[in-house]
Structure formats: structure tokens, C-alpha cells
Design a protein around this nucleic acid. Sequence first.
DNA 1: TTGTAAGCGTTATCAA
DNA 2: TTGATAACGCTTACAA
Lengths: 338, 338
Amino acid sequence: MTTEMSPQAPTLEMVAAAAGVSRSTVSRVVNASPNVTAEAIAAVSRAIDELGYVPNRAARILASRRTFSIALVIPENTAKFFADPYFATVIQGVAMYLSGTEYTLTLLIAAENDAEKTRRYLQAGNVDGAIILSHHSDDRSYVALARSIPVVFGGRPMSAEGPNPYYVDVDNVEASREITTRLIAAGRTRIVSIAGPANMGAGLDRLEGWQRALKAAGLPEVRIERGDFTPASGADAMRRLLDSGVDFDGVFAASAQMASGALTVLHERGIRVPEDVGMVTIDNDYFAQSAVPPLTTIEQPTIEVGGKMASVLLRLIDGENVDRVTMMPVKVIERTSA
Amino acid sequence: MTTEMSPQAPTLEMVAAAAGVSRSTVSRVVNASPNVTAEAIAAVSRAIDELGYVPNRAARILASRRTFSIALVIPENTAKFFADPYFATVIQGVAMYLSGTEYTLTLLIAAENDAEKTRRYLQAGNVDGAIILSHHSDDRSYVALARSIPVVFGGRPMSAEGPNPYYVDVDNVEASREITTRLIAAGRTRIVSIAGPANMGAGLDRLEGWQRALKAAGLPEVRIERGDFTPASGADAMRRLLDSGVDFDGVFAASAQMASGALTVLHERGIRVPEDVGMVTIDNDYFAQSAVPPLTTIEQPTIEVGGKMASVLLRLIDGENVDRVTMMPVKVIERTSA
DNA sequence: TTGTAAGCGTTATCAA
DNA sequence: TTGATAACGCTTACAA
């Protein structure tokens, strides 16, 4: 950087001088505290505008013991899924909600081999609260973290220990049960599942929803192949399914990305959808929309999930009473793949 | 939050007491300044470990005038592209690079109607520098921002005014020229372009590369249809192309997402790729990999682009001499679509 | 309702 | 090499 002097930012003291009041009064106006005369407010506001005053964050934090910032923690192994439309959109939702508040978002990629560093950062009072976006089950330490600062999880955390966590989620069991039902209604009787990882809440729940739908209809659980929610894993799962020789006429894939990968393999092998096999999935992202054929699926309000996590966290920070679990509504999107 | 007293974080003063030295000495040890006896270092280090001391960020910032944090600014209109694999991965690259440093990342979604708010935040000394990820050409105010704090852009900013900006980019002209050449080598002679927006550097440059390749081969610029880099816009562009009745046997799409959308339309209309028309594009994301057929394309080192932007910014902050423009290498990926 | 003054936990200057 | 001591810019009792 050049050594040129940066234009000295105006301080609260300068505003006070310009407005002809004390620093306390300026502080009160800035913080919208009651018991300030309209005149004082007007004078201070004018001075603030003229000088282009912006409170110094560090000073404010130091004096008030509040940071007005929250952390969005992404464990390193989950960071690989950064480009997953679901994660990306949730993060976006958080950021957008915050942009309408005084809060600032600190993005933390937590190195697996140095969890201690992250934990300390969070506990050292650098943030007022944290949102944990964990794909996997190794969220034990974060659940414990909730004892020292407010924490909100994206999706039900797997750890049993620690206090009951706050989290925002959708009803994955019901969603997958519902969508599997569409396959059954279309006359499919031998329905397999390309399931998510067993160490994730969404993986488990979506599998259970599929099972419930089959059971209710008296249909057999023909076969389960697991993936990790990525397109590549969906393709692999479909290959295993096909190579196993098992007979099926319907597929429930636990994510649109996996469905998309599976579809590619089906296409390669000359198997037609929906003529030969029907397919339904979860997520209404681009993968579902532009698949050939477009997929009948469940839409989750991802942006809103992010916004909700932020709002729950902020209310927690403000000491308000909030439900520990917030379920967001989903929507069935009927297209032509079932 | 509950009113229970949070375990009072140990202060530098407490460390000093425990180690039997002054606060100054502790500060020196913490900041690894020279001229401290080995004994002092040892004593202080022990005390730090025992107490689990972590420096208070706000106090440190206030006293040192350095924030050890940088902002990643995403203009609101660009935020819509959050789930674009390119953006998502670049952000991830930034975050991951930073996780290996003392720096913290503040994610800022800048509201269009209140650019002033963002500008002030950045200039009020809340961050040591900023990375601007702007999709569009309305980056004027950010270029000006570079006068007060170090700023690095992702991709060449369009604004002419202001000082020469620092930015990290790939050679889009050369990349698209190169990939278009593959189409020509495959015998295509009537090649159209699904171009990006005219208000983006990447949009302009990729169009120019296509033009250069055609010119070098003595081929005509059959037609140009514009999109905004999204799959939907690529599909629309292809529809317009087809409906216009213009005759073509090759397509250069300026992004894999647009290519993917275009492919869907081609498929709907029963036009085969590569038999009837060849297609090449840019970006080796999932869209390019799992398209049917898989696309011959250009791979950009997106994670590295993010990392590079962060490292350039940090060096700028440290007052080092850095090249204003950093070009990252790209790679041709040959598949079967040309 | 407003002002005074004492911190908040560091760093930085200056003497010793 | 170390230690006092004065900032850093703001909030917050407490007094007026």
C-alpha cells in the first residue's frame, strides 16, 4: 500500500464538537437510546451526515462487550460442498438477511486438524454467536460450543451429547415419504433408493421417508445404494444398481445432484425415463430443473432457511425466547420423471 | 441468552501477573517481537498455556489500528449468482487461503440502493483491505475505494476511472480463441456464439476470442446471441438461434452453464451433438462434465484464483510490491462435444 | 435530559 | 531488554 496518509476518519468526539454537545449525547443518538431531546438528535444527526461519521467498530466492541458480528462456521470437510447449490444458497440467505441488520458475517472454514483454533476464536468473544453448517456428524465440539455462546445449526446435528441444540431444518422424513408416494401413484412397484450418507441427518431421514412410503403401500425395499449427495456419487450408485442385476422400475434419489448423475448413467445404458423407470428426488435446483427429463421433486426454501437461521441466532443473542427447532415448509414440484 | 456468567476470559494483565513480568513483555512475546530473553518467553508462554489466554481482538485492533480482517464484497446483483460454481469456488478459495493466516473474512452483500453504507463501512477502518467480486460493470465506486484501502478485484473491472486496479483473472480472449479453434479443427465452418453480457469483462473478452479464431481461419461470424451466463439464458439464446433459421454447425458458448442450457434445447428439437452441431465452452464445472455429451472446454483454476486474490491483497496490506494484474493459467479439456 | 469520568484490553512510546 | 504510562474511540454508570 502507498504510505499516503489515509483521510482521518471522523471520531465521535469530532461529531460532539460539531454538534455542540457532549460525547455521551452523540453516543446516545447513535445508539438510539431514549431520553434525548429532538433538538439534540437533530443537531447530532446533521453533524454525523456532514462529517460522514461511522462508529469505530473495535472501540465500540471493546467498550460494550458486544461484537455485532456472528460467525458462519463451515467444517473443512463440508467446505468441499461449497458449490453445492443448497449450501451456497443457504449461505447467501444468511448474508442477505444480515445485510439488513447491524451485524457482520465472519466466514470461518474450520480446519479439521486444528479445531482448537476455531473453538478459541469463537469463545474468545470475537463474535456474539455462530451458525454451524456441518455436512457430517463430527459436530460434537460445536454442540458443546453452544454452552458458551448462542449457536444455531443448519439441519439437525447428529450429536446426542450436550444441551438440546437450536436448529433450522425441513421435515426430511415427510418430504421424502411424500415424493416417493408419487412414484407409487404412478404405478411403480419395485422402487430402489439412492440414499445419502448415514452420518448425516438428511441422509438418514430421507431414507426413512422412503421406507415409510413403501411400507404404507405394502411394497418391498428392493435395494439401497449410498452416495454422498454429489452427482458423481449418484452416477456410481446407479452403476452399482444396474450391475447388480436387481430388477426395479422406480428410483428415489435423496438429492437432485445424485439423481442427475444417475440419469446420466441410465441414459448411457439406454434405459428410458420415465418409460422404463420413474425417478423422483429432493431439491429443486438447476440439476432438477434441467435434467432430461425434468425431475419431479421437493422444493426447499433454501434462501429462507439461511435467513431463518440468522434471525433465530439474532433473537437468541438478544435474549429472546425462541423455539429450539424451526421447521421450514417444502413444496412438491410435479414434472415428468415419475 | 441465559444470564449465567460466561467464564471471564483471561486478559493480558493476568498473564503478566502469572508470569511475573509486565504487560509490555507479555505483549512482546505474543507478537513475537525480537529482543526478549528466552527466559521471559518461556515464562510468558507457560502462563499463556495455563490460562488459555487468547488476545482480545477488539482491543488489539483499537490499539494497533490494524484489523486483521478483510472484506469480501459481493454487490447485490452479483449475489444472485452465489450458486454459480465459479463464484462459489472462488469464495471458497479465498476463505481457505485465509484460514491459514491470522486474517478473518467478512462477507458483505452490498445493497445496490445503499452503496454508501458499504463504502463507509469499508472506509471506516473496519477492515485492512477488500476483495470485490463484481459480476457487472457498476464497479465504479469500488474502483474509487481503492484510493483509501487496498482492493483486489476478481476479474478485470470495467471502470476506466480511478487508479489502475489490482486484479486476478485468466486470459479470457486467448482461452476462448483456443477452444474455438478446436471447433474449427473438427471441420466446423459456420460457428455461432452464445456470448456473455456486454457489461462484463469476461463477456467481452470471450466474444473477442471467438472472433479472433474465426478471423484467423477466414470464417464468418454467423451470429451472436447474448445470455447472462446462466443455464436459462443459454437455453433462450439457443431457441432464438434455432428460430431465426440461421444455418450453423458449431457453437461456442461463453460459459458451461449456458452451454448446458443450450444443449437441453438442442436435445428437445432433436438436433444431435456432435453429429449435427459441435459445441465448445468455458468452465470445467459439473455442467461441462455431466452434459450429454460431455463438453470440450477450458478449465480455470477457480480455487486458486480465490487463493491468489487473498494472497495478493495480504501482500498489498503488508506494503509489498505486487503486480497489478495476475493472470492464472487455464487448461484445455478435450471431450466429445466438438 | 445532559455531561463527567472511568473504564474496555491492547499496543506503542519513552525512560530506565 | 524491560517497565511505566499514555493513547486507541467508544459506552456507561453516576452526578448534575
